[in-house]
Amino acid sequence: MTYILQTQVGRSSIDFHIQTTFLYDELTARFRSFKASENLEAPDIQVEVYDFYGKPFDDGPVEIQENGDEYVYIRADYKLETSSDYSQAKIYVHDDLALKHALINLYSSWLIHRCAGLLIHSSCVVENDRAWMFAGPSGAGKSTVADLSDPRPILSDEATLLLFEQDGSITIHDSPFRSEMEEACELPSSPLAGIHFLIQSQDVRRVGIRKGDALISLLDKIFYWEHNKLETAKMIALCKQAVESVPAYELYFQKNDAFWGVIS
C-alpha cells in the first residue's frame, strides 16, 4: 500500500491504508474533519482502500453476501469486504462517489453493531448551541435547509452522525459524509435538541408528532442495508432510543429561512 491516513470520526479512530494518490487526495479532502490520531492504541476500524474497481454507479442495489466470518457488499461501483464486527475491511472502488458510499455503509454498520450511534439521511444545523436535525425523503429539502441556515454551524448536509452518550443523552458530531456543503463545521459536536421531518408547504409551521410516528418516520432514514436480523433489531432499538430522548416534529416550510422563526 502506498499511503497511510490516521483519522478520527466522532469518538472512533479509523486508519486507512490507501492504494493510489487519487484515493488519498479524496480521503484527505472530502473527510477533512479527520484529525491525525494521537493515541497509540490500535484503531477502532482499519480499512484498506483499492482503486480501479467495477464501473460507474448504475442505480442498482447493494447485494450482500455472508462468507463465513465476513460480509461482502457489492454494488456496480464498489465492493466492501468486512469482518463480522466491521473493524477490519477492504474496499474496492470505481470513483469518489463509490468511496463515500462504501465508507458510509461500513461506518454505519460499525456504529449499529456496537450500539454506539446511527448515520441518518438528514441535515443538521446548530442554533444556540443545540443541534436540530432535518430529515425527509429525497428532494424534501434537507440540503436546502442547511443552505438557508447560514451562518449557523452545519454539522451535516447529507448524513447526520448521531452518537449516544453514556448518560443517555445524544450528541451530533461533525459529519465527514457530505454532499455539497463540504466545509467542516467549526464545532466538533453539539447536543441534539430535536428532529424535524420536512414537508414542503405554502405556509411555515411546526407540529409535534407522537413518538411512535417519529419512530416509523426515522426507520427508513437510517443508512442501513439489511443483512442480519440481530443487527436490524439493534438498529430498531437505537431508533427507539433516539425518539424517546428528544421531541420530533413535522416541519412545514417554504424555501426561505422563515422556518427558524418557528423553531427557536
Partner: peptide, 24 residues
C-alpha cells in the same frame, strides 16, 4: 419469530423484520 416491539406514548409498534411491515 423476528417481531420487534416498541412501546412509545401508550402506543405499541410491532415491527416484522421479515416483511418490514409495521403494525400500530
Amino acid at each position: 419469530k423476528n417481531i420487534e416491539t416498541a412501546e412509545l406514548d401508550g402506543e405499541w409498534l410491532l415491527l416484522n423484520i421479515n416483511t418490514h411491515a409495521i403494525t400500530k
